[in-house]
C-alpha cells in the first residue's frame, strides 16, 4: 500500500515467539525468525517437524483448522498479522501460497489465472493483460498461449503447478509461500520450477518448505532447520550447509536421520 515509507532494512516477515497448539498437542514452540525482502528462505526438517505448520501461519491458513490455537506475533511490514485489525482475506492477497499438489480449479487455463483478479474487481479490459503477464512470469506462456480456453486439468502435472504459480502471481502478492511445491513432480518439471522460483526472487519474498535438501541448497539464500516443532537453527544457506552450529542440524544434513 505505502511502498514509499517502507524501511528497506526492515525484514519482510518477522516472527516473534510463535507457539501453536492443535488441541492439546503443541506443534510449534517459541519460533522466532526474520525473513529479508526479495530473498528465498528454505525451511527444512524431518516430516512432522512443524515446517508446514509454520508456513501456514504466515498466511493464516491454520485458521481453517479446528482446535488450532496460536500465540506470538507475525509481523509483515511492521504489522502483526494476528493483530486485532487485520483482515485475513486482505492478508492472503498479499501473502500468496502454492501447494504441494498442483490444484487448478476445474475451469479453463484462462479462468484459473483470471479467477483472483476478477473477484478482486479487476477491470475486464485489463484482464487479458494480467493473465498473459502472470503466465509469462510463471514461464508457461509459450507452452499454452494457443489454448487458453482448454481445461486446466488437461495440463501435465508440472504445467499445472506453474499454472498455480501464475494464478498466485495474478493477484500481485508481495510474499509467496511454497509448501513442498515439487514433491509431486518429476525431475525435469522440478528443475523448471526451481529456475522459476529463483527468477521470482527479484520481485517477491519467497518462503519454501522442502523435504529435498539439495533443493534448499540450490535455490535458497537462507535456511531454517525445524525439529519437533522448534526452529533449531536459522541462517545463511551456505553457513547452514557447510558449517552448521548445531549438532542435530549437521546430523540431519548429512543424512544421519530424517
Amino acid at each position: 500500500m505505502t511502498e514509499a515509507v517502507q524501511n528497506v532494512s526492515q525484514p519482510q516477515i518477522q516472527v516473534e515467539n510463535l507457539n501453536l497448539w492443535y488441541g492439546e498437542k503443541q506443534a510449534l514452540k517459541n519460533v522466532s525468525m526474520q525473513i529479508p525482502k526479495n530473498s528465498i528462505t528454505a525451511l527444512i526438517g524431518p516430516s512432522g517437524c512443524g515446517k508446514s505448520t509454520f508456513i501456514r501461519c504466515l498466511n493464516r491458513m491454520n485458521d481453517l483448522i479446528k482446535d488450532c490455537r496460536i500465540e506470538g506475533r507475525v509481523l509483515t511490514e511492521g504489522k502483526d498479522i494476528y493483530g486485532p485489525n487485520i483482515d485475513v482475506v486482505d492478508l492472503r492477497k498479499k501473502v500468496g501460497m502454492v501447494f504441494q499438489k498442483p490444484n487448478p480449479f476445474p475451469m479453463s487455463i484462462y479462468d484459473n489465472v483470471a479467477y483472483g483478479p476478477r473477484i478482486h474487481g479487476a477491470n475486464r479490459k485489463d484482464l487479458d493483460g494480467i493473465v498473459e503477464q502472470a503466465l509469462r512470469s510463471a514461464a508457461i506462456w509459450n507452452e499454452i498461449s494457443d489454448r487458453l480456453k482448454s481445461p486446466a486439468l488437461s495440463l501435465s502435472g508440472g504445467q499445472q503447478q506453474r499454472l498455480c504459480i501464475a494464478r498466485t502471481l495474478a493477484v500481485k502478492p508481495k510474499i509467496i509461500l511454497f509448501d513442498e511445491p515439487t514433491s509431486a513432480l518429476d525431475p525435469i518439471s522440478t528443475s523448471r520450477i526451481e529456475d522459476l522460483i529463483i527468477n521470482l526472487k527479484k520481485d517477491y519474498t519467497i518462503v519454501i518448505v522442502t523435504h529435498n535438501m539439495q533443493q534448499a541448497a540450490r535455490i535458497s539464500d537462507y535456511t531454517g532447520f525445524f525439529l519437533m516443532g522448534e526452529l533449531i537453527e536459522f541462517g545463511q544457506t551456505r553457513q547452514i550447509f557447510q558449517n552448521p552450529r548445531e549438532k542435530s542440524t549437521e546430523d540431519y544434513i548429512t543424512g544421519r536421520f530424517g
Binding site: N103, F105, I119
Partner: peptide, 11 residues
C-alpha cells in the same frame, strides 16, 4: 484443495 487454494488467493 479447491477451497484452500481459493482462500490462499485472498478470496
Amino acid at each position: 484443495e479447491y477451497r484452500e487454494s481459493s482462500l490462499a488467493l485472498g478470496v
